[in-house]
Simulated scan of single mutants.
Amino acid sequence: MRYIKYAFLAIVAPALVAVAVANRDIVTLTLLPSGLAALAGMNQAIDLPLFVVIIAGVAAGLLIGFVWEWLREFRQRAESARKDREIKELKRQLRRLRAEKHAGEDEVLALLDEAS
Rank of each mutant, 00 (worst) to 15 (best):
M1E: 12
I4P: 03
I4K: 13
K5C: 14
L9W: 10
L9N: 08
A10S: 12
A10I: 05
V12Q: 11
A13Y: 12
A13C: 05
A15T: 08
A18I: 15
V19D: 04
V19W: 07
V21Q: 06
V21S: 05
A22C: 02
A22P: 05
N23S: 09
N23Y: 11
R24S: 15
R24W: 04
R24N: 14
R24F: 01
I26S: 06
L29A: 10
T30M: 06
L31T: 12
L32G: 02
P33H: 10
P33E: 08
S34G: 09
A37H: 12
A45G: 08
I46L: 02
L48K: 07
L48V: 12
F51P: 04
V53Q: 04
V53A: 15
I55T: 15
A56D: 14
A56Q: 00
A59F: 11
A60I: 02
G61M: 13
L62V: 09
L62I: 02
W68G: 08
E69S: 08
W70C: 13
R75T: 13
Q76W: 02
Q76H: 06
R77F: 00
S80H: 09
S80C: 06
D84Q: 09
D84W: 10
D84Y: 10
R85P: 01
E86F: 04
E86D: 10
K91V: 11
Q93K: 01
R96I: 11
L97K: 03
R98I: 05
E100K: 09
H102S: 12
H102D: 00
A103W: 08
G104S: 14
E105W: 08
A110E: 01
A110D: 12
A110Y: 09
L111D: 12
D113N: 05
